[in-house]
Design a protein around this nucleic acid. Sequence first.
DNA 1: TATGCACCCTGTAGCAACTACAGGGTCAAG
DNA 2: CTTGACCCTGTAGTTGCTACAGGGTGCATA
Lengths: 136, 136
Amino acid sequence: MKIGELSRATGTNIETIRYYERIGLLPAPDRTAANYRSYGDAHRSRLSFVRHSRDLGFTIEEIRSLLDLSDDPARDCGEADRIATAHLEQVQAKIAQLTLLRDELARIVGRCRGGVAADCRVIEALGDHRHCESPH
Amino acid sequence: MKIGELSRATGTNIETIRYYERIGLLPAPDRTAANYRSYGDAHRSRLSFVRHSRDLGFTIEEIRSLLDLSDDPARDCGEADRIATAHLEQVQAKIAQLTLLRDELARIVGRCRGGVAADCRVIEALGDHRHCESPH
DNA sequence: TATGCACCCTGTAGCAACTACAGGGTCAAG
DNA sequence: CTTGACCCTGTAGTTGCTACAGGGTGCATA
Ligand SMILES: [Zn+2]
Ligand SMILES: [Zn+2]
Ligand SMILES: [Zn+2]
Ligand SMILES: [Zn+2]
């Protein structure tokens, strides 16, 4: 499989595939006589793993650890669980933070009654956190 | 006010203040004889506006537009409202996306029963989106 | 045979919004 | 007169890509 085919098979940008190789996330594949990268099924499933994990919001470093783990099938999977749980907690924290933000923004946006910038409650609210009702 | 004092007054990193000046978000202040930046109240409140808007998740470019608007108090404030509303919608979209993610991650994490990596349901789920119940 | 076109290669630079030095200058206190 | 806190400029690093520039390869068609 050449890089374009792998790209289509996994929905990954070609430049991104080369980038993953450069940072050591994907192993360098064999080359054809014309120096084209030549991938097999193992590459495809590894890249799918990476893409899916990225879609789920894991960082490259987390994915690196997860791949190390799955490359070594006899190891205890506790670390995978720890990484995934920590990530879940981060997502929950982010949701909580964005929810505060959303409420505050909704309050701010709701204050605008039109008119000139000098009288705008939105601009006023942005300039001074003391107008806020939440910490954010 | 020297830069360290402005930094403390607004809770902004000194490097960040200089960065904002470099990108034209804050006007270059006067200098002392020793070539130190010397700020006044106008700088302080402009920087507070920037920091607060950043805390609320606005991008630098959005903040630039908002500052332009508030620099020109006779202008209609409709654009401020549009920027803030668009931003609110983005935050809402992000929350929705993260909520899907959170649910999917919770399902994945919940599957791990311990054991070796080869049998780990977490690693399996990360490798294949077909195990997912939501699109994310 | 030429030539067009799709595809591949490397290497580098750009994005957002900072942050972190390196390598220097200034100033007041002890 | 030296120590330490502060300030300066300029550059490079961070994350996770993405976008070229400037070239090579391979196959079909005129
Ligand atoms: Zn308004
Ligand atoms: Zn606030
Ligand atoms: Zn497990
Ligand atoms: Zn999935």
